[in-house]
Design a protein around this nucleic acid. Sequence first.
DNA 1: ATGATTTTATAGATTATCTATATTCTATCA
DNA 2: TGATAGAATATAGATAATCTATAAAATCAT
Lengths: 223, 223
Amino acid sequence: MNAHVLQPPDPDRSVAERIAEVLTRRIVLGELPPGHKVGQDLVAAEFRASHVPVREAFRRLEARGLLVSEPRRGVRVAPIAPEAVHEVTEMRAALEVLALREAAEALTDADLQEARQALAAEEESGELIVWEEANRRFHRALVTPCRMPRLLQAIDDLHQASARYLLATWKSLDWEPRSDAEHRAILDALTSGDVEAAAAVLREHILAAGRALRQRLVALGRI
Amino acid sequence: MNAHVLQPPDPDRSVAERIAEVLTRRIVLGELPPGHKVGQDLVAAEFRASHVPVREAFRRLEARGLLVSEPRRGVRVAPIAPEAVHEVTEMRAALEVLALREAAEALTDADLQEARQALAAEEESGELIVWEEANRRFHRALVTPCRMPRLLQAIDDLHQASARYLLATWKSLDWEPRSDAEHRAILDALTSGDVEAAAAVLREHILAAGRALRQRLVALGRI
DNA sequence: ATGATTTTATAGATTATCTATATTCTATCA
DNA sequence: TGATAGAATATAGATAATCTATAAAATCAT
């Protein structure tokens, strides 16, 4: 019996991969809140799958820091704590700056064009989730040319965590479109070939965004 | 039937975790060479386990970069390439420096004492593998106090990769004990409270070791 | 009401079985 | 003889039914 009613069959991707993908999206979007218990049998039933690929998907998300697993007690959606925001922010700053420096010499006009388009998409976006997608596109355009798969994967994982913190903290309601002046400054520096200036702005940009997020999160905690 | 003949039963750790641990050790030590095909049924038979926890162990090691998985073709031990050495080296430099800076204010005399003991163990070691263990102890002592679990996990994973590259490149035969002057310089800087100097030396130390490793690996490739 | 005890639900794992694909072996033909 | 198409085999990925141990919930006795 072919089991994949909801998802397209797609023989090139394993069931575990597809489950991991859907669960990732739900966690990042906040549909599954922090601390939420994710029962393997429930997920298996939903995806018309057995518990084996579900457990494999759990292991993937655990490695990415989206799920936490307690022995004999199953898995839960990772909590959102100010310390974790700080951690992810600092790691992003360190690794994205590294990636940008490594990408710089390989950076083509097409890459810069992609970043410009992402920036335009940010400025057009009226909704947080749309802005966040463009934001990720922008950052990714700058680092992808470094061609370091392990580094890029680590940055992607951290970005996912960041996006989750952002969406959980600023609900679309009270979010207002931001100027993205820093993104523009990074692009200008890169266009004029000043990689170090771009790296410095990128670093401060990530840290500032992290600080804002952390403050807001602490404030929410006090309410 | 209780299945655990070789490993102690230990109900607190899952079968998957124990398999992952043993496979990790084998890959790091080079007992399983790069490119080696790891058959799930073979591993399952060896551990007297079913293929389910074996696959979970595979997912863990895949996330750590020790295994690579091709759909429908199973998993292989990750290759060792000069580009990967460069990548891991740069990531380690970035993240360990971050961790050291964050750890600095929490660094106790006990931590420094542990680092000193590790340094002594390095200098006493006549064998590469013993030295490597002490080396990891040293680096870990400096970063652990930062209390950032995600960062520490990432550093640990990178260290494992580094250790694998080191052991694969310098077979114990042609390795000679090294002075570890840089480790001593880091310790001296920290003892005198100069965190920035320690961070600078740590960074250069990691990068220099990475360069040496990479050069040797490229040379081996040319033979 | 509360603490101890039973019940229930479920995580983790096994075993047998199934399908699809990669690989290997073999036989055929140029 | 050598390349290649096709059959046979091995195995990855997955299912389903079942089992044990434990954590959580419900029940009962005090």
